[in-house]
Design a protein around this nucleic acid. Structure first.
Lengths: 115, 115
DNA sequence: GGCCTAATTCTAGAATTATCGAAATAACAT
DNA sequence: ATGTTATTTCGATAATTCTAGAATTAGGCC
């Protein structure tokens, strides 16, 4: 199993590009069955090959999955991974260390305290 | 003002590198007053110039801030930005799609919920 | 002034990423 | 088999990022 921080970094990197983030948004908001690549291509108006590369890195990071349906490929969001990543980020930033774990909920850290 | 998606992408990109993610973790867990760069350098055992570049991109993204104290520079986490980013990601990935749930009902998001 | 420590900025090479047209593949219909 | 549509992979180039040693700035102290 890869180090948690490595995996999180890879996923965050995949999201760290405006086009890819937009692609993911589009996929997330699309039908649960998944969104055809061609539909994304038409909607976002970027060259098919460029889109394909971005989709590949999102898939490589495990943030989306792909399934063929006839000649079209449907991409759909991996909500489990997205949720895990969000929670990891939250733990990291506010709870103070998800990896070494123990840390009870003793310390809310500035984030969640009254503001 | 920059588009929200652009800003989020920049911040996610800053987090999308194992060393920077580790640096941020270290800063977050450090004292509220901020952690001196030298302490991070000693703890993480990376060349000072490399560390400085990584800290600069975290600061550029608004995820950490820096304050001078004598000859040392203290970096501290920008919890507000971190929380905003986490929430944006959450909204984008899970509330927007609501794979099996109708959104509305203000999902507490993993953040401050007891769980 | 000179000296020390802390940290950044300069510089440069290697490695990676981004982009996109052209060519290739996959599935299906005729 | 041929054609058509959907999408990826190839190939090539431009741009960016990563890394780290060397030089520099900033502050404090004698």
């Amino acid at each position: 199993m890869r180090r948690l921080v490595e995996q999180a970094a890879e996923q965050l990197k995949a999201l760290g590009h405006p086009v890819r983030l937009t692609i993911l948004r589009s996929v997330v908001q699309g039908p649960v069955a998944g969104t055809p690549a061609g539909e994304l291509q038409a909607r976002l108006e970027i060259p098919a090959s460029t889109l394909s590369h971005h989709l590949a890195s999102l898939a490589e990071a495990g943030l989306v999955s792909v399934a063929r349906e006839g000649t079209t490929l449907r991409y759909r969001a991996e909500f489990g991974a997205l949720r895990a990543l969000t929670e990891y980020l939250w733990e990291d930033c506010c709870s103070g260390g998800a990896e070494s774990k123990p840390r009870k909920k003793a310390k809310p850290s500035p984030c969640c305290s009254g503001d």
